[in-house]
């Protein structure tokens, strides 16, 4: 009897230790990256680093503004493309489509959610870049290589399609059928029911899906590295190239050790990514809680 209880205790303590360790990973990563970016933070203030546009590591100039803007442009573009398309798709699948179509389409979408980003990158290079270069950009600008914010946005958007569609369909399926009937029986059309009742009810879930999609797009590395052009100048339009933070980090890995402070600057960009993701998560959670309380 004693042995059983002892076993319970010992194993419990071990599990607790593992849990504490893995939970503190957030903190460990933060501290680790902070320590590594300390050298550059001692030379320049965070404000200087974030607002300066001049990126010349050889001369010791480290301005992150172009990369931050690049990240925002590309992420924003992808969300702008993906959210409306995915919402309409999810609504169609859950409210309008015949059951047989839904049964065929949804597993396909789930399957594509697993395709690695590098494949989306390959597709972007071979499919999206030429289209942007030959068919879209010439209508707006004189010359474009195709490697632009637009291309990055499209590739990222397609990458987050499966994510948003599958979560939103799941969210819509939890809404009781009777709520739909209540609205329909008042003489509302199907679309009115969707617009005024279902979307309202599903809003917290849809919001959470979009937050996850933004995090994914924001931190995506290899796909944007392949299609955005990587020019360290803040983009002015969707036909300019962009150089998002993760791409900067990934691209300069080999050479960073030989230049003073370069390595520290790159680690600072990783640190910045982490902090932005953390802040974004906290804010969205707070908003979500507010909405849920209001709708309760």
């Amino acid at each position: 009897m004693k042995i059983r209880l002892l076993k319970d205790k010992v194993i419990g303590t071990g599990m607790l230790a593992l849990s504490v360790l893995s939970v503190s990973l957030v903190l460990l990563i933060g501290i680790g990256l902070y320590l590594r970016s300390l050298p550059i933070l001692q030379q320049y203030s965070v404000w200087e680093l974030v607002t300066s546009s001049s990126w010349r590591p050889m001369k010791g100039e480290f301005g992150f503004f172009p990369f931050i803007m690049g990240t925002l442009w590309v992420t924003g573009m992808s969300i702008l493309i993906a959210v409306p398309l995915c919402l309409f798709t999810a609504i169609y699948l859950s409210e309008y489509a015949p059951a047989s179509f839904k049964r065929f389409f949804l597993p396909l979408v789930n399957m594509l959610a697993g395709i690695p980003p590098v494949i989306y990158g390959v597709w972007g290079v071979f499919f999206i870049i030429p289209i942007v270069q030959r068919y879209i950009a010439p209508h707006f600008v004189e010359f474009s290589t195709g490697y632009t914010v637009l291309a990055g946005g499209i590739v990222l958007a397609v990458m987050i399609f499966p994510l948003i569609v599958s979560i939103v369909v799941e969210v819509l399926s939890t809404i009781p059928k009777e709520l739909r009937e209540a609205s329909l029986s008042l003489g509302a059309t199907k679309w009115e029911t969707v617009k005024k009742v279902i979307l309202r009810k599903a809003f917290p879930g849809i919001f959470a899906a979009i937050v996850l999609a933004i995090s994914r797009a924001f931190g995506e590395t290899i796909a944007v590295l392949m299609v955005c052009g990587n020019v360290p100048i803040a983009p002015q339009s969707i036909f300019d190239p962009a150089y998002p933070l993760p791409a900067l980090l990934a691209n300069n890995f080999g050479e960073m050790m030989s230049v003073p402070l370069y390595d520290s600057a790159l680690m600072f960009s990783a640190f910045a990514l982490l902090i932005i993701i953390l802040i974004f998560n906290i804010i969205s959670r707070a908003i979500l809680q507010k909405i849920e309380i209001r709708n309760a």
Binding site: L179, A182, S183, L184, L186, R200, K201
Partner: peptide, 18 residues
């Protein structure tokens, strides 16, 4: 929609719109 407008439905459980 006109047909349904002519009829009020009171379901098993109340489902207030959100």
């Amino acid at each position: 929609t006109q047909i349904r407008k002519k009829m009020g439905l009171l379901a098993q459980r109340p489902f207030p719109l959100p």
